[in-house]
C-alpha cells in the first residue's frame, strides 16, 4: 500500500460547530464533529469510513470537499494545498472532487429535468456548446445504465435506484478523480444496493476513480473498500486494510462494531462485545481517549491522556493505549 501515490492528504483536520446561546448569540462552546483527523487517501483506492451515526463521518467528507468550513488543519490534493485558498482558485479542484449523496431525491431539484440537472455541471465548468453538452449528458445517462430519453424527465418519475444512478452520473460528469460517497447506497434496498455498488466499481475501473466511501454498513464496506477508517466521536480510532481490519481488529471500538454485524448462520454465535451507555455528547467532549466512557478495557490513563495514532503493523494504525 505504501508504494501507492497519495491523492489526498488530510492533516490534523478539525471541524467544530459553535454552540450559541442567549440573546446575544455568544458562543458558549463547540460541537467537535471532526477532531484531529489525519489520513492519506491513495490514488485509485476505495477508503471506507465507518462509525455510528453522529460520529462525524459525513461532516468529515463534506469538510474535505469544502462544503463545510474547516476549523483547523490542512487538506492537500495531489500535493497542492486546497484548504484556505480563495474561492476562485478552488474551482478547478471542485471539478476534480465530487460527491454522491445519501438521498438522491433530495439532491435533485424537483423543478428541473434530469437532463438539465446533469447539463449544469458542464455549464459551470466548461464552455462547450449546448448541442455537445446535451450529447454528453445522453452519453452519461447510458454510462450509468439509464436510457437516453430519461433526459426529459423529472426526479419524481424515477425509482430510488435510478435516482442514485443520476446522482452518480452527475458526480462523474466532469471526469473527477476523487469522489466522496456519503452513504451512497444506504438508502437503497439490498438488490439495488448491489447494482449500484457494481456500477461504482465499474466506473472506478473505467475512470480511475478514488472513492472515500462513507457508510455505517460494515458488510458493504468490507465488500467495497481496500482500506477502512473507523471513526468514533469525530476522531480516528483505527485504520487498516479491510482484510486486516476484519481479521484482526485492534481497537476495542472496532471489535464492538464488528461483533455487531448480523451473522448469516443462526446458532453460530460469536462473542458479542456490548457497549454500555450512549455516545457522549460531542458538545461536551470527553478528555483523554474519546472512547473511554464506554470502553470495556479503559484504564485511568485513558480518561486523561489522548492516545496517540500509532502504526501497529504495516499500514495498520490505531489510537488506543491498551493495544
Amino acid at each position: 500500500m505504501s508504494n501507492q501515490q497519495t491523492l489526498l492528504e488530510v492533516k490534523n483536520l478539525k471541524k467544530y460547530f459553535p454552540v450559541k446561546s442567549g440573546i446575544l448569540k455568544r458562543t458558549i462552546g463547540s460541537v467537535k464533529a471532526v477532531e484531529d483527523v489525519s489520513i492519506e487517501v491513495y490514488e485509485g483506492e476505495t477508503l471506507g469510513v465507518v462509525g455510528e451515526s453522529g460520529c462525524g463521518k459525513s461532516t468529515f467528507g463534506r469538510t474535505i470537499l469544502g462544503l463545510e468550513e474547516r476549523t483547523e488543519g490542512t487538506i492537500s490534493f495531489r500535493g497542492e494545498k486546497i484548504s484556505g485558498i480563495p474561492e476562485k482558485n478552488l474551482k478547478k479542484f471542485k471539478k476534480e472532487m465530487q460527491m454522491i449523496f445519501q438521498d438522491p431525491y433530495a439532491t435533485l431539484n424537483p423543478r428541473q429535468r434530469i437532463g438539465d440537472a446533469l447539463e449544469e455541471a458542464f455549464i459551470i465548468h466548461t464552455d462547450i456548446p449546448k448541442k455537445e453538452r446535451q450529447q454528453r449528458v445522453r452519453e452519461l445517462l447510458t454510462e450509468v445504465g439509464l436510457k437516453e430519453e430519461y433526459y426529459e424527465r423529472y426526479p419524481h418519475e424515477f425509482s430510488g435506484g435510478q435516482r442514485q444512478r443520476i446522482g452518480i452520473a452527475r458526480a462523474i460528469a466532469l471526469n473527477p478523480s476523487f469522489i466522496v460517497c456519503d452513504e451512497a447506497v444506504s438508502a437503497l434496498d439490498v438488490s439495488v444496493q448491489a447494482q449500484i455498488i457494481k456500477l461504482l466499481k465499474k466506473l472506478q475501473q473505467s475512470h480511475q476513480l478514488t472513492y472515500l466511501f462513507i457508510s455505517h454498513d460494515l458488510g458493504v464496506v468490507r465488500n467495497v473498500c481496500d482500506r477502512v477508517l473507523v471513526m468514533y466521536l469525530g476522531a480516528t480510532a483505527e485504520l487498516a486494510s479491510s482484510t486486516q481490519l476484519y481479521k484482526n481488529p485492534l481497537h476495542p471500538y472496532t471489535k464492538a462494531l464488528l461483533s455487531a454485524i448480523p451473522r448469516p448462520v443462526p446458532g453460530r454465535k460469536k462473542e458479542r462485545v456490548r457497549l454500555e451507555g450512549e455516545l457522549p455528547n460531542a458538545a461536551n467532549y470527553p478528555n483523554g481517549c474519546p472512547f473511554h466512557t464506554r470502553c470495556p478495557i479503559a484504564t485511568e490513563k485513558c480518561s486523561q491522556v489522548r492516545p496517540e495514532w500509532r502504526e501497529m503493523e504495516e499500514g495498520h494504525f490505531v489510537a488506543c493505549h491498551e493495544v
Binding site: L67, M99, A106, N109, P110, R111, Q112, E120, I124, H125
Partner: peptide, 26 residues
C-alpha cells in the same frame, strides 16, 4: 437547506446560479 442546493455547491455553482435556478423556482 435542501440537499440539492448543497449538491450544486459541491458542483461549484455560483451563488447567482443557485439562487435563480434552484432556489427561486422552488
Amino acid at each position: 437547506k435542501q440537499e440539492y442546493v448543497l449538491a450544486m455547491k459541491s458542483l461549484g455553482a455560483s451563488d447567482r446560479r443557485i439562487i435563480l435556478k434552484h432556489i427561486l423556482p422552488n
